[in-house]
Amino acid sequence: MKIKKSWLALFAGIWGLYACNDSGTPLSTPTSGSTNISIDESFQPIMESVVDTFEGIYDRADIEAAYKSEGEVIKDFLNDSTRVVVLSRELTPEEAAVFEKKKMIPRTTKIAIDAVALITNPNNPDTLLTMEEVRSVFNGKTTSWKALEESSGLGDITIVFDNNNSSTARYVRDSLTTNQTLPKNTFAAKSHQALIDYVAQNENAIGVIGVNWISDLDDSTAINFLNKINVLGISEESNPVTTESFYQPYQAYIAQGVYPLRRFLYVISTEGRAGLGTGFASFLGGDQGQRIILKSGLVPATMPVRIIGLGNQ
């Protein structure tokens, strides 16, 4: 009996060393423990669903998700406040160099194709823009709705973002402006709800928002937002002949690549062992996570989107 007890004590001691770090805090596993993750707030609707599902499946997992502007997420990542982030871009060479100095290797996994939507007030009759016109607006060359449509009775254009430090503002600066600055008729509404409310109340506004906030047609919040605004159709042709050349940010058009304002969604981790953050990243890239992304209206990175064409009978 004494020998048996000695073996049990030895096993318990070994397990205690394995399951705890130097501070005595239990280590996480891919499906248990606790971890904090910083997430670009553009993806809050979909990521809340993924986190809830993950914690529902693995009841010993506790994920503290912080939804912040892209700039704040990067700040958290660089100063080691978190080891896992969800972003709409990969790290820059300068950011990657910070981790190289720490002898850490960030692991990047593409999990979805996303899009940026342009929204306007329901009373604005101009619901179609070419990419040439979009660039002109965000470069500050076109400042009135009348310059886009001569018969328009609207006034000067007001451009609205959710946050000056957001991923959508950075996307516009990088992709649509020539000198990576935004025009003077631009301001930040401080939140996605405030952005949509402003556009809904101001006829001259054009809002820039991550499509995730309006793409899930089973979500009551997304439906409520869509009832307040128009979503613009965009054409890459300079002189479109028909309205069929214009595309809204629907899932099928994002998947086909015909909607022009597309971007990718990534999960990036510096977790040096197989902890909860690594398990969550694997879940996002796996079958269950990809199915949630598919349902949300974004395009999953590893799961095909079924596109049904309806021809004339």
Score class of each variant (00 low, 15 high):
Phe11Met: 10
Leu176Glu: 04
Tyr266Met: 12
Thr178Pro: 00
Phe187Thr: 04
Ala115Thr: 14
Ser282Leu: 09
Pro183Thr: 09
Arg135Val: 00
Lys146Trp: 00
Glu90Gly: 14
Ile293Cys: 00
Ile113Leu: 11
Asp287Ile: 14
Ile111Glu: 01
Arg173Gly: 02
Thr158Ala: 10
Arg273Asn: 08
Ile229Asn: 02
Tyr58His: 15
Gly155Phe: 05
Leu284Val: 00
Asn164Arg: 12
Ser238Pro: 00
Asn164Gln: 10
Ser42Phe: 02
Leu128His: 08
Asn121Leu: 05
Leu118Tyr: 02
Ala301Trp: 07
Arg83Val: 01
Lys110Cys: 12
His192Leu: 00
Ser175Ile: 03
Lys146Cys: 01
Asp22Val: 08
Leu310Thr: 11
Val116Glu: 02
Lys146Leu: 01
Asn212His: 13
Val84Met: 01
Pro45Ser: 12
Thr120His: 06
Lys295Asp: 02
Arg273Val: 07
Ser282Ala: 12
Asp40Ile: 01
Ala66Lys: 06
Gly13Arg: 09
Thr109Asp: 07
Val134Met: 05
Ser151Leu: 08
Glu271His: 07
Leu176Trp: 06
Pro26Arg: 15
Pro249Met: 11
Asp216Gly: 05
Thr158Ser: 13
Asn21Gly: 13
Gly257Asn: 12
Ala255Ile: 00
Val98Asn: 10
Asn204Ile: 13
Asp216Ala: 08
Ile119Cys: 06
Glu150Asn: 13
Lys5His: 10
Lys68His: 02
Val299Phe: 10
Asn121Met: 05
Phe283Met: 05
Gly233Gln: 10
Asn204Pro: 02
Gly311Ile: 11
Ala115Leu: 07
Ser6Tyr: 13
Val267His: 03
Ala301Thr: 11
Pro240Ala: 13
Lys228Ile: 02
Asp40Pro: 09
Phe99Tyr: 15
Phe54Val: 09
Ser282Glu: 10
Tyr250Gln: 05
Gly279Trp: 13
Ile292Asn: 01
Phe54Asn: 09
Gln313His: 09
Lys228Glu: 00
Lys103Leu: 04
Ser152Arg: 14
Ser6Phe: 11
Ala12Gly: 08
